[in-house]
Design a protein around this nucleic acid. Structure first.
Length: 556
RNA sequence: UGGGAUGUCGCCAAGUGGCUAAGGCACCAGGUUUUGAUCCUGGCAUUCGCAGGUUCGAGUCCUGCCAUCCCAGCCA
């Protein structure tokens, strides 16, 4: 059960019923992006659902580019989409298609509709068509060209295709019902004239089919059994069905709609994401704060964690906004199991251990994972001078603060007990160094049974490797930025913090740079390969849960 | 105002007329712990948008109302 991609939901119930009734024996789904932008977390839901359902039912999932509008599409986007889908962990094998592969068949089906008297060429202008479509309260008016003969429509449509008419001067429309309550059924446009170079068909066509006409027929051609899409297409379904019912097509896929994924404090609108990039509010489409798959990849989100997140969220028809904490918890619980531990100090404070010999050096060992021995262990150099986290010292600490303060003993992780005796301040009064002593007998821990509550992380000053660390917070301060008049006003000015003084133990720099490491007591980090400066850059994936911070907050 | 949909705990989400309304996140309280992490234990909806009705029995069926979302591209 747990090895499935998708938990039971209303869609899998439909599939189960279709399998039980014998309507289908093999399940075929499809992920149909338009190659006009980058994929984001919302697409991840569709990808995981379509590919996941196919995998769970031992079926097939096609990747189909919905490239019916050459105006907005590019091969670069298509390439990026393929990379993202693969990265998420899915494989369409040989089933990569384009809606444009079917342009000839689509054209022939349009001819069939004309021959059946179900489609006509309309000469009305775009404004007239809009005008005559009516609105929610007013039924539409039939086009004056609606009753043209089949022969005339055939002639005109063929000439549209031959390039005899200007862009926008004519369209092919389905003859359905201009008074329908469903505006999609008020003689929808099937083909428009648009002289534009297409990423796959080049200049062979000057007429392009519309989404509604193309999608269902493409599904049917490919033998898709269940065509899963988002809620806003619900009232397109009658049209999807109408086209398939009125052409010579034996199979009829079932369109099923589910609700989009919305994540609190984030944005998933192509237009708005683009605005962030254009206005240089982020460092490109793959900025680690972006909700794009490329951004999450660069941030260090493991694909398996994203899949798990989508699985946890479930599939339904109710509009929902998933709390960011669900994503964070999924990330943490995944990372906790797979991340090797390492010590890194983000904001270093020097500690001199006065009773540790000047020239002495020791190699200690630390487990790579506290609960899983199979991760092994690694060497950690120790010496007289070390760095500890600045926040692990507090001048006036209460009893609940079990870290460094004058006279208090703490444990250095994987090392000795030290006791702080004195804090050295600079002229401004900032603490710049701590003088401590260590207990040589305390290595390994238990010593004489003293109770030492606090254990802090550290890095040997002599062996420390400097790195740049980038901490990320939510990009927006508002739980639903998309709902704002101007979402840019909700931008969190502190979404990125760059730390250039951070140090890590040498082991990290020798280890695999592809994996996400836990800097103990801090957060999970992954090496940024894309935009490095003079120092190695590490991106914060997600922080650890911090009940101390919560405690402090509640005390205030 | 027409058409389509949705309303179960702060956020998701099971539930398909019959034992005490799953589970996750969040939150709260405790325990273990060389990460204030992890892990473990316990708490957290007398009630399912509201009001009626059917039934021995309703979150599940019926009626009415209310709220929210989507639709008037030659976009997808």
């Amino acid at each position: 059960m747990t090895d499935k991609y998708v938990t039971e939901n209303f869609i899998t119930q439909i599939i189960d019923a279709d399998l039980a009734s014998g309507k289908h024996t093999d399940i075929v789904t499809r992920f149909p992006p338009e190659p006009n932008g980058y994929l984001h977390i919302g697409h991840a839901k569709s990808i995981c659902l379509n590919f996941g359902v196919a995998a769970d039912y031992n079926g097939t999932c096609h990747l189909r580019f919905d490239d019916t509008n050459p105006e907005k599409e590019s091969a670069e986007y298509a390439q990026a989409i393929k990379e993202d889908v693969r990265w998420l962990g899915f494989d369409w094998a040989e089933h990569e298609y384009n809606a444009s592969d079917y342009f000839q068949q689509l054209y022939d089906f349009a001819i069939e509709l004309i021959n059946k008297g179900l489609a006509y060429v309309d000469d009305q202008s775009i404004e007239e068509i809009r005008e005559n479509r009516g609105d929610f309260n007013t039924p539409g008016k039939n086009s004056p060209y609606r009753e043209r003969s089949v022969a005339e429509n055939l002639d005109l449509f063929q000439r549209m295709n031959a390039g005899e008419f200007d862009d926008g001067s004519k369209v092919l429309r389905a003859k359905i019902d201009m008074t329908s309550g469903n505006i999609n059924m008020r003689d929808p446009v099937i083909y428009r004239i648009r002289r534009m170079h297409h990423i796959h068909t080049g200049d062979t066509w000057c007429i392009y089919p519309m989404y509604d006409f193309t999608h269902g027929i493409s599904d049917a051609i490919e033998g898709i059994t269940h065509s899963l899409c988002t809620l806003e297409f619900e009232d397109h379904r009658p049209l999807y069905d109408w086209y398939l019912d009125n052409i010579s097509m034996p199979n009829h896929p079932q369109q099923i709609e589910f609700s989009r994924l919305n994540l609190s404090f984030t944005i998933t609108s192509k237009r708005k994401l683009n605005e962030l990039v254009e206005n240089k509010l982020v460092d490109g489409w793959d900025d680690p704060r972006m909700s794009t798959l490329s951004g999450m990849r660069r941030r260090g989100y493991p694909p398996a964690a994203i899949r798990e997140f989508i699985k946890r969220v479930g599939v339904s028809k109710s509009e929902s906004v998933i709390s960011m904490t669900v994503l964070e918890d999924t990330l943490r619980s995944h990372l906790n199991k797979v991340s090797p531990r390492v010590m890194g100090v983000l904001k270093p404070l020097k500690v001199v251990i006065e009773n540790y010999p000047e020239d002495k050096e020791e190699i200690l060992t630390g487990a790579n994972h506290p609960q899983d021995d199979s991760f092994g262990e690694h060497d950690i150099p120790f010496g007289r001078e070390i760095y500890v986290e600045h926040s692990d010292y507090k001048e006036n600490a209460n009893r609940k603060f079990f870290r460094l303060t004058e006279g208090r003993e703490v444990r250095l992780r994987h090392a000795y007990y030290i006791t702080c005796h004195k804090a050295i301040k600079n002229e401004q009064g900032d603490v710049v160094e701590l003088r401590c002593t260590y207990d040589p007998e305390s290595r390994g821990g238990t010593a004489d049974g003293r109770k030492v509550k606090g254990t802090i992380h550290w890095v040997s000053a002599k062996h420390a490797k400097k790195i740049e660390v980038r901490l990320y917070d939510r990009l927006f301060n508002h739980p639903n930025p998309a709902a704002l008049d101007n979402f840019l006003e909700a931008i969190n000015p502190d979404s990125l913090t760059i730390l250039k003084e951070a140090v890590v133990e040498p082991y990290l720099m020798d280890a695999d740079q592809e994996v996400v490491y836990q800097f103990e007591r801090n957060a999970y980090f992954k090496r940024d390969k894309t935009h490095e400066t003079d120092l190695p850059v590490f991106n914060q994936v997600v922080t650890m849960r911090d009940s101390w911070a919560k405690l402090e907050e509640n005390d205030d």
